[in-house]
Computed example of a mutant assay.
Amino acid sequence: MVFLESTEAQILGVAIAAVAVGAAAFYLYSSKKAKVCLDPEKWKEFKLVKRSQLSHNVAKFRFTLPTPTSVLGLPIGQHISCRGKDGQGEEVIKPYTPTTLDSDVGYFELVIKMYPQGRMSHHFRELHVGDYLAVKGPKGRFRYQPGQVRAFGMLAGGSGITPMFQVARAILENPNDKTNVHLIYANVTYEDILLKEELESLTANYAGRFKVYYVLNQNQFQVKRRRIRANRPLV
């Protein structure tokens, strides 16, 4: 009888422990579940935590999300609206596409080319670490679906590379998507090429699936073509 009572107590204890472990695991899973931050109807503010100057008029801005497991929640192929102030203090809104994906949890990044007369460019020039950027989204009608085409052709110029880069990354980094990507990227000079290291990294990591062709201004092409080693530029 003592043996039976002891066994029943052990079984009960194991059952309680299993329930406790299960509840803890569920709580841990729920607490780590990615939180989507974007709202298509409301402006959300995100703190600038890092600013990297890539050239005299191009910078990369990293904004933190509320938690380390938060994601922006931007479907592939869509963009966000950013709100700021121009040089006259008037509100200006402009669309941008992050270079990061939702697989980059806890933050998102924007690569911005700042033009001398650009109204939103003024806002980004004045943006310092610790400042906040108002964002709304997602925006746009296009949504990429993995495997919807065998090959994806892209044409970009200047700062228009960011949405193409976002889609290319999403395709190539998805192990279930076998789509090939071909990108023609036009710029005035070699120095104007944005995200060149990142593009060459994609070429190296996904050889045969990703090809980028650089097109430069004809006057610059003869001087700069030897400096583009990873890919064959078009004339």
Rank of each mutant, 00 (worst) to 15 (best):
V215K: 00
Q222K: 14
R209A: 15
D86W: 02
R141S: 13
I93D: 01
L28S: 10
T100C: 07
K35R: 06
L172H: 15
W43T: 09
E200C: 06
L216A: 11
V215M: 04
V2M: 07
P163R: 06
T203A: 14
R225N: 14
P175G: 15
L54G: 05
R62T: 13
R225T: 11
V111F: 02
E173Q: 15
M120H: 05
Y29I: 15
D39Q: 05
F210T: 03
M120C: 07
V212M: 09
F124E: 00
K224G: 09
K196T: 11
T189R: 14
L183G: 01
Y132S: 03
E8P: 00
G87Q: 05
V92N: 06
G84V: 01
A186Y: 00
S121Q: 05
I112T: 05
T99H: 00
A59R: 05
T97M: 06
S55V: 15
M120F: 12
G158S: 08
E41K: 10
R62C: 12
G153Y: 15
H56F: 12
R119C: 07
S103A: 09
K178T: 14
R169V: 06
V19Q: 09
T69A: 08
L12K: 13
F165W: 03
P66K: 05
F26E: 02
T203W: 12
F3N: 01
V149H: 07
L216R: 02
L202G: 04
G118K: 08
K44Q: 10
V223P: 04
E109W: 03
V19N: 12
F108M: 12
P116G: 11
Q88W: 04
A186Q: 06
Y214D: 11
Y190A: 07
A59D: 09
G84P: 04
T7Y: 13
A59T: 07
Q10D: 02
Q145G: 00
F61H: 02
R150P: 02
A207I: 15
V135P: 03
L54S: 00
A156S: 12
A170I: 02
T99P: 00
K224F: 10
R225E: 13
